[in-house]
């Protein structure tokens, strides 16, 4: 499991059970296309891009994604989810070089 800088943000910060909240996952990742040359060495920079992402909430898959190299460097993935009790939200991704990364946060509805 890699130790990249990543974040999960929930909006609004405080929410109730049953509420639909905005979830963003952002990660520091180069998203190298493999089609770009180093300006100095003129060598092709090898491809390294996220190719799959999964959002799990208490073990249930909410959203999955197939990703290609056109996503920007340090990509952001934003969607919504329905809060359904206390638990854990995990985001997992793998990239084209086989790197795997997971980030999770606690979901704690108020009232």
């Amino acid at each position: 499991m890699s130790s990249r800088k990543s974040l999960i943000k929930i909006k609004p910060k405080s929410y109730k059970d049953g509420e639909i909240v905005k979830v963003s996952f952002m990660v520091m990742h180069p998203m190298e296309t493999g089609m770009r040359k180093d300006k100095k060495t003129k060598e092709v920079i090898p491809a390294k891009y996220i190719n799959s992402v999964k959002f799990d909430y208490n073990g249930k898959v909410i959203t999955t994604m197939n990703v290609w190299e056109s996503l920007s460097t340090n990509p952001v993935f934003t969607t919504y989810m329905k809060v359904n009790g206390e638990g854990k939200l995990s985001v997992t991704f793998s990239d084209s070089t086989g790197e795997v990364h997971e980030k999770s946060i606690k979901i704690k509805p108020k009232g």
Partner: peptide
């Protein structure tokens, strides 16, 4: 990107940034 949603998303929305 292909984003596969489920009814648990509650709202059909996806946002990202592309090159």
């Amino acid at each position: 990107i292909d984003v596969h949603l489920t009814p648990s998303n509650g709202k059909a929305m996806f946002a990202t940034r592309i090159k």
